[in-house]
Design a protein around this nucleic acid. Sequence first.
DNA 1: ACTCCTTTGTCCTGTGAGTGGAAAAAGTAG
DNA 2: CTACTTTTTCCACTCACAGGACAAAGGAGT
Lengths: 396, 396
Amino acid sequence: MRRMTARPANAHQARLLRLLRDGGPNSRAQLGDQVDLSRSKLAVEVDRLLETDLVVADGLAASRGGRRSHNIRLNPHLRFLGVDIGATSVDVAVTNAELEILGHINQPMDVREGPVAVFEQVLAMAAKLKASGLAEGFDGAGIGVPGPVRFPEGIPVAPPIMPGWDGFPVREALSQDLGCPVMVDNDVNLMAMGEQHAGVARTVADFLCVKIGTGIGCGIVVGGEVYRGTTGSAGDIGHIQAVPDGRPCACGNRGCLEAHFSGAALARDAMEAAEQRLSAELAGRLEANGTLSAVDVAAAAAAGDATALDLIREGGNRTGQVIAGLVSFFNPGLVVIGGGVTGLGHTLLAAIRTQVYRGSLPLATGNLPIVLGELGPTAGVIGAARLISDHLFSPA
Amino acid sequence: MRRMTARPANAHQARLLRLLRDGGPNSRAQLGDQVDLSRSKLAVEVDRLLETDLVVADGLAASRGGRRSHNIRLNPHLRFLGVDIGATSVDVAVTNAELEILGHINQPMDVREGPVAVFEQVLAMAAKLKASGLAEGFDGAGIGVPGPVRFPEGIPVAPPIMPGWDGFPVREALSQDLGCPVMVDNDVNLMAMGEQHAGVARTVADFLCVKIGTGIGCGIVVGGEVYRGTTGSAGDIGHIQAVPDGRPCACGNRGCLEAHFSGAALARDAMEAAEQRLSAELAGRLEANGTLSAVDVAAAAAAGDATALDLIREGGNRTGQVIAGLVSFFNPGLVVIGGGVTGLGHTLLAAIRTQVYRGSLPLATGNLPIVLGELGPTAGVIGAARLISDHLFSPA
DNA sequence: ACTCCTTTGTCCTGTGAGTGGAAAAAGTAG
DNA sequence: CTACTTTTTCCACTCACAGGACAAAGGAGT
């Protein structure tokens, strides 16, 4: 099949495409109920969309008491590629136009190998998904990278954990390689968009999405739109000071949140505890694997290990204090906690909640849910697909 | 003169009104350059605005090399009332439709006397301005109050420093008393709007406006629009923890920024220093007045008093640390410092700058100006006028 | 099977917004 | 006084869109 290149010609068509994306197949009549257009106008726009092949007819809808309506849906052959590049692994997924995941691969990887090596791997993973018959080609791709991005151009700027990526024209290069439109964003922002599209944040206009992985970042959604800041570095909360005169951080300061709690810091703390024989559980795991990661701490905590639980609680407290400040400042309607460490689960969540509910004023916390992300590792790739579909489903 | 009641009939007219508000008198041709409408369409909309009496003809414009154009301006009889209710004083000002201040009164007052007493005073002040011939009536009023506001209804919610105001229908009541449309907002947001309209933030889309007065608050502007949060308490940074296990605060926590630095805290610290004879300058002032305020500290600092300078630096450092966190999170294009303590001037600013430039990553601070507000005590009332004019100059 | 009612889809015309060209009006520069 | 600009008005034409009329298709009751 030839790839779709058509774009909606006007705001009405864009609106309809998004309704079909978010609501699945729909009858013309149901669409009419949602868009406040005259029936004639709606019919014209739907016909034009049918001509572009972006949407197709899909049989008859159930009767609502009278004549049955014809169903409309997004072309089932449309395919989006969602790529979520983490510090130590990549997720690549294929979705249909309704952003349902059809196939998903995760592979370990090191961003520090640089964009060329990483994209070689990403393209191979995409090819593998294609080969398994899930897609004949891609109509668009969304890419998440673990660092700040100059959004309009899709170029990473001064990313601390990705030396060699600074200024690399990710959007341009991948658009060439994949032969389709590409959008690039910070991985945390994509997680926020994912949770907004298909997760816990579906109905909230203003929320924060804190991602605790190798580092710590925060997606900011204002009025349903991701806020990226003046230079694309908004949400970079890993280097907020959490402990006065605390541990030295790679950024040159002391006491950064990220230095005290993150996947990397947690692994270091666990190793230290194991070596000092504070925890038999952790020491055993260290002996078995030669190293420890956040996953080991999670497992130890699940097994009831006091040291591991303490580490998690301690980190949750630090994180919660920072989030409490952000809640006072931003007054969100929801806080989502996600990222690799969600395996730490409710111990972590409880610590964060305690600090936030204690440290912020009641007016801000009174009706504030603080929850774990619903989508886990798929949040990023769903958000990536959402990013590119938002781009493609907007007036040309 | 009968008061204006007309409102723009469509988005084009609203656009034109705002251009005339922000750019002053303008020729039709100049307007045409700015709005991307055909000449015919523009002529029609301008004619309709002339019919509503919102704008009037204003003689001939200078020639731009050919036929001279007819000037258009907002009706010079339009009057807005800007009211900025602080914790300890009220500002009331009259502006024309271009938001230029025609008259401005400041009076001491105590918000804790409650809305009825305060509005009695405000109405008296408005009447005084009217009596001095500056206005025959008001076409709209903007009100700022020192606490969170449920914006659409214009009702304060759970304001910590204004007991007795909770749930008082400010908008409704004042609209009755003044006989004109009224909008209500947090005083900090109004200061941000004031600096955006006529001060240092004219060209910046995303910025923070930190107001240090009796308390500490922060106006948040995203994409040119004030962000108010889910419950209207966004920007309430006074109760972010600045000092672990620090001083007890009225909110029940310890170490809140506001407990360590604000007009009130500064006055307390100065009294203490004076009583302990740490500073002859402050002690002298205490003896002379019986009490001390932030103004005394500013004067002592200006006279070179080391203790006063230390207090300011100490407070600036605390504030700067909190702002550094907000800068990392929000990545603004500008930070404005304003409020009563701007009298502390560059000592304060230097301390804040030091902390922010040290405590945030270069990508966020690289091109980040941190400046004092330009408008001083008029920022609030200009912002109030701007608030109501934005409301009135939008499609009905 | 038939009637009556509801819902859906199509067609068509009227209206009003808006564009763009032409020409008149009012200047400036030489 | 002439040639050239800019501003303003006027007018005809296009286009989007609403909304009514009507046909098509189905459900429910008799």
